[in-house]
Nucleic acid binder design. Structure first.
Lengths: 214, 214
DNA sequence: CTTTTATGAATGAAGG
DNA sequence: CCTTCATTCATAAAAG
């Protein structure tokens, strides 16, 4: 990722040289010509320009594509977020709403949640969620979804913490995280490599090396 | 958002015309000149070229910056994913690299899925799934199971979203501080920054009048 | 102010 | 279909 940006920079620098040439035609490019005032370029210079311009056209196209891809992703993933804080944005008076995007439990709520979690069955059914939510609302803004998520995360992370302590025990791999319990999850039809996005960006950098040859 | 892309396209088209002119100097630009073969341009043509090139330089710089901003957050994770399969560790230990992560739709795929979901019958029958999968394969690795799951999840969650529209909101008691000093966070928000980028792109083209002065 | 960590939320996949 | 789990993402909070 950094790579292509560097290359882009180089391109731009390169281009700047061209511009410099244009701006300082002391190289003998330009001269007067009778009543018709013209600038004169050698074939080489002309070719250079052509190629340089072609390079820019390519770069811009690529950048547009890349940006399209990136923003498409963000737009779609943002769609879900958009409901909270993006929809009413800017609409009123151009003032940012600056709504909080993420619920944060108050200390009191947290305490109560922890207590319920420890004593509870660990499977807070829907009805239970409702109750808890009702109760916690007394101590601050909260929704059933918040409670649901909280228990989900709490359980998942409580569970993970247990497997981590037994990490460097008999396992000599430099690999940080692998899931041992359900390792057979490579079960369905295909191994899906999600190299869909990364490699695509890779050959996006500058796929026309010959253009650099001049 | 769409706006600047269109303008980009226009720019590119515009540029292509220039290239065309360069490649087809039937406009009387070029002529012979004794032993030194040169191309000749009028001042106007030269000026046009200069401007065009300058515009490209500016656009590229701006695009690089924009892209940098947009991807600063998200493409780091993308790179991280990239490491999983391009990983040199593959050869080192002969150790299992434990299969891929879960499938993630590419932006294009997501777009197409969303479109189908909205317009479609909502009942992705077996045959339909096959078709969709075939089509989406053109844009990245995907399996019928992926498509199936996606529709299942999409429907279920879309449904739940309606029953519980009240997602969440601000903190608890200490929220009322609306326009507090720290409210003006310097931290760029992804979606917002994109929105900002659009207007910025708008004045990208000619925002440096001095560049036109030469 | 920048970097790291903790954690609320989103989502692909499995089970029933 | 619905629920549940596991993983990932993004960001508020904490650390430097």
């Amino acid at each position: 990722m950094m790579e292509w940006q560097q290359q882009q920079q180089q391109q731009i620098q390169n281009q700047q040289q061209i511009i410099h040439h244009l701006q300082n035609p002391e190289d003998g490019i330009g001269n007067g010509n009778g009543g018709l005032y013209v600038k004169v370029m050698t074939d080489e210079q002309m070719e250079l320009l052509r190629r340089q311009i072609a390079v820019y056209a390519t770069i811009c196209e690529q950048l547009v594509e890349m940006h399209k891809a990136v923003t498409a992703q963000q737009d779609l993933t943002g769609m879900r977020l958009g409901n909270f804080y993006c929809d009413p944005f800017m609409a009123s008076g151009g003032h940012k709403i600056t709504a909080r995007q993420r619920w944060t439990p108050t200390p009191v709520q947290l305490q109560m949640l922890e207590r319920i979690f420890e004593e509870g069955t660990g499977t807070p059914c829907k009805q239970k969620i409702k109750e808890i939510t009702m109760e916690l609302t007394q101590h601050g803004q909260i929704s059933e979804t918040n409670v649901y998520n909280w228990f989900q995360n709490r359980r998942a992370r409580s569970k993970r913490k247990q497997s981590v302590p037994a990490q460097n025990n008999g396992e000599s791999e430099a690999e940080p995280e692998v899931e041992s319990p359900r390792d057979e999850k490579t079960k369905p039809e295909d191994i899906m490599s999600l190299d869909n996005s990364a490699p695509r960006a890779e050959n996006m950098y500058l796929q026309s090396p010959e253009i650099w040859k001049f």
